[in-house]
Amino acid sequence: MNRSRERSPALWKWLVGPWMIGVTLLAYLWAQPLNNGFQSPEAARIIFWHVPMAMLGLVWFWIGAVHGVRYLYGKRRGDPGLDAKIHFANEVGLICTILATLSGMVFAAVQWGTPWNWDPKQVSISVLILLYLAYFGVRMSVEQEALRARLSAVYSIFGAVATPVLFYVIPNLPQIAKLHPPASTITSGLDPKWRLIYWASTLGFLWTTLWLYELRLRTAAVEEALEVVEAPATEVRLQAMRRPAA
C-alpha cells in the first residue's frame, strides 16, 4: 500500500514494547494500592488494563463507522480499500471489547464475588460483542463483494449509533441497579499518579491496536494483490455501429 513506510524500519512499532513494559512497571511499583472501596487494594490496578480496552473498543467501532460513512457517501465512495478499513477497525474493536470483558470478569470475581452478575455495563458490553459479531454475520451472508461492503457499512453505522445509548443512557437509568463506578471516577476523582499511568496505558494500547490494524490492512492488500488477475492493458472500445449501407 504505502511503499515508503514499508521500506523504512518503523521505529514507532519498536517503541511500543518498551513503552508498555514501562507502563506495567509503573503500574505495579510506582502506583500505591488504593483502599477506598476495593475488596483487595491490589485489584484497583484493573483500571490500567480494563478501562482503556473498553474505551478503545468503542473508539475502534466509531472509526469503523466513520469509514462506513466515507464508504457510502464520501469522495472515495465504493472504494474496497475503505471496506477493508471498516472491516479491520471493527475486528480490532471486537478484540478490545472481548479483552475488556475477560479482564472485567477477573476483577468482578475478586471484587463482587462472581465473574458475571448482569451489571448494566456487563450487559452493555455483551450486547456490543453480539452487535459486532452480527456485523461479521452480515459479511458472511453476502457473496457479491460490492453489496457485502455496502450492507456491512450500513450495519456498522447503525450499530455505532446505538452504542451511546447502550453505554451512557441505559446504565444511568434510575431504575437500574449498578455496581460499576461512574465514568467520572477516572477523569477527576483519581490520584494524579494513577491518572498519569492510566493515560499512558491508554496511549500504549491505542498504539498497539493501531499497529494491529495496519498489519491487517497490509496483509489483506498482499492477499488481494496475489488474487487479482491482471486485466489486459488494452483499452476496449465496443462502439455501436450503423447498419452498413446496402
Binding site: 457479491q144 463483494e145 488474487e227 487479482v228 488477475v229 486485466a231 483499452e235 476496449v236 472500445r237 465496443l238 462502439q239 455501436a240
Partner: peptide, 28 residues
Amino acid sequence: HLENLGKSFGKRAVFRGVWASLRTGETL
C-alpha cells in the same frame, strides 16, 4: 448516450468499454 460502460460481477467482467449514441427515432 452510453459512454464507456463496463460491468463486472466479482472478478468476471460482463462487458467493458461499451459506447453508443442514439437520438429520437433511432433503434439500437
